[in-house]
């Protein structure tokens, strides 16, 4: 117990907030890359790939992120790897984000109107040409609003990295609270910081969604 909230505490919180953003970016890049593969597997002509990807999505979406965090933190340690909190948190977030983004993007690929697939086939494009030149450019447009919306989920879920000792915003708040013991004040500040990170993204996602709705007739 000592003292009141001062500038150093706030700097420490700011440092934690930077790591929250950093971990979110890692999760978005890693999970985005893996999620893209999952989405492609989900619409693949190969039955085996489709089943494998669907099983992965079902398993991860049926498991809490907290348990995934514990699994990668303790699991990799059990194999004998000395794992850092950053690695454990980054790996778990990637695994988690891949399942959700993969499923979102699969929906977006499938939302590209059917005649587009048929027209591309009619023009004798190969399957990969069809994907790259016709389907994906349109799917990306459909995918932007829900992806931005999911970034809010990513930022919020990085708070769970605190349980494996990764010092992001929530963990730095806990550390400060251990010395000041003013939990309500500190967690209110933290909630405000999360809000100011997430709210602009929520707004942006909704705006993108509205403009996409207005443009929709041109697509179909």
């Amino acid at each position: 117990m000592g003292g009141t909230l001062n500038l150093n505490h706030l700097l420490f919180l700011g440092h934690g907030a930077l790591w929250t953003i950093g971990l979110s970016v890692i999760a978005l890049i890693g999970g985005g890359a893996a999620g893209f593969l999952i989405a492609l597997c989900r619409v693949s002509p190969s039955r085996l790939l489709r089943i494998l990807a669907a099983t992965y999505v079902q398993l991860i979406q049926g498991t809490p992120l907290l348990v995934i965090m514990f699994l990668s933190f303790f699991g990799l340690a059990a194999i004998g790897l000395n794992i850092s909190p950053l690695l454990a948190a980054g790996a778990s977030m990637t695994i988690f984000v891949a399942a959700y983004l993969g499923e979102i993007w699969r929906g977006c690929i499938e939302a590209v109107p059917k005649p587009q697939w048929e027209a591309a086939e009619g023009l004798a494009l190969s399957r990969s040409q069809r994907m790259v030149k016709v389907i994906l450019p349109q799917a990306i447009r459909i995918a932007t609003p829900p992806t931005v919306g999911f970034m809010v989920q990513i930022i919020k879920n990085t708070s769970l990295a605190s349980v494996v000792g990764f010092v992001e915003l929530t963990r730095s708040g806990q550390i400060i609270n251990n010395s000041l013991f003013e939990p309500f004040l500190i967690y209110s500040i933290i909630a405000l910081v999360y809000f100011s990170l997430c709210y602009p993204l929520s707004r942006l996602s909704r705006r993108l969604e509205r403009t996409a709705l207005q443009k929709k007739p041109a697509l179909a």
Binding site: V152, K156, S159, L160, P183, F184, Y187, A191, Y199, S202
Partner: peptide, 22 residues
């Protein structure tokens, strides 16, 4: 709605936990 949807559940739980006890 906006307040809850833009903050992590973990922080909400701590706020309720410490808020009620304070």
């Amino acid at each position: 709605v906006e307040g809850i949807r833009n903050t992590p559940l973990l922080v909400q739980i701590f706020l309720v936990y410490f808020g009620l006890s304070s």
